[in-house]
Computed example of a mutant assay.
Amino acid sequence: MKKKLAVMALAAATLSMMAMPVYADDLVTVGYAQVGHESDWRTANTQNYQDVFSEDAGYSLDLVDCDNDNAAQLEAVRTFISKDMDYIVIAPIQSAGWDTVLQEAQDAGIPVIIADREIEASDDLYDAWVGTNTTNEGITAGNWLAEYLGDADANILVIEGSVGASATLGRTDGFNQVAGEHDNWTILDSQSGDFTQAGGQEVMESFIKSYEGQFNVVICQNDNEAYGAMDAMDAAGITYGVDGDVTLISFDATHDGLQYTLDGKINCDVECNPIQAETVKGVIEKMQAGEDYEKTTLVEDQAFVAPGIESEYATTMTQEVLDGRAY
């Protein structure tokens, strides 16, 4: 009887083990050096990686929030190398200064995927890049403004993103390309709001003091900066958006940003799509299988405008559009 019970217990234990999830040793390890948590966009991007690179999908994700600290991000990548991660994904805080640590990853035989932002390094030092074209985002904003204003003058204030970030550089360069084609456009000032609501409010408050009554366009390089700029203009009694004295342009097209667009407070919101982890996972799967993969993959994005505005460059916001958004 005891022998029979022992056999039954062993069988039960075997079935239990068969029903258990895949062991951690069998998971593909991915280290993600995330920029930080400075914006709603970044939060959505982090959640996307956590959802996609789950244990159920066969992955072990080590995500490090680098809190917009470039030195901390370099250290995070070196920690991934020391842990011998299968893959390293980097959303670079700054575009420069990556050559040495990328060479270290390459020497360790660990594939590196640059995501979201770009870097100033030879493409021989990393294996793939996945992200959006931020220069095109800036061009889209400029083209839309030209379409919207027609022959009217534009006196423009720009709240830039974080200094040295490729998103800042790309959106600035793209918009300036279009602005340079219009003699009646003047960029009065351009300062960094560091992609945060507090930063956007602080810069806008300073702008209002320096350029009161002189501007009719405000460009914020992400939605959180736009929220801060709106707070500052509200406090100063300055109207903006549809039928306002100031045309407000934003970037990212997060849920709240598009809600403000639907409400007519933001005239135009140019998307930077944070749903990128699926694309990164697709690249990794091809690497795992030894298949050819694209060195560069662009994630599609679009632009949105407030109700009542028709545009060649953007989709007019509706509640249906907002309800259908993934973030």
Rank of each mutant, 00 (worst) to 15 (best):
A128S: 11
W129H: 14
W129A: 07
V130S: 05
T132E: 15
T134Q: 15
W144A: 05
G150T: 05
G150F: 00
G150W: 00
A152V: 01
A152M: 07
D153I: 05
A154G: 04
L157C: 04
I159C: 01
I159V: 14
G161R: 06
G161E: 01
V163I: 14
G164L: 09
T168D: 13
L169N: 13
R171W: 01
T172R: 13
F175R: 04
N176G: 06
Q177G: 10
A179M: 03
G180T: 05
G180R: 07
E181M: 11
H182F: 10
N184Y: 00
W185E: 00
T186Y: 03
T186S: 13
I187R: 13
I187G: 10
D189W: 08
S190H: 05
Q191H: 08
Q197C: 11
Q201Y: 07
Q201I: 10
M204P: 06
M204Y: 12
E205R: 12
S206Y: 01
F207V: 04
K209Y: 12
K209W: 01
S210N: 14
S210K: 14
E212M: 09
G213S: 04
G213K: 09
F215N: 08
V218C: 01
N222Y: 05
D223I: 10
E225A: 13
E225M: 15
Y227F: 15
D231N: 14
A235Y: 10
A235P: 02
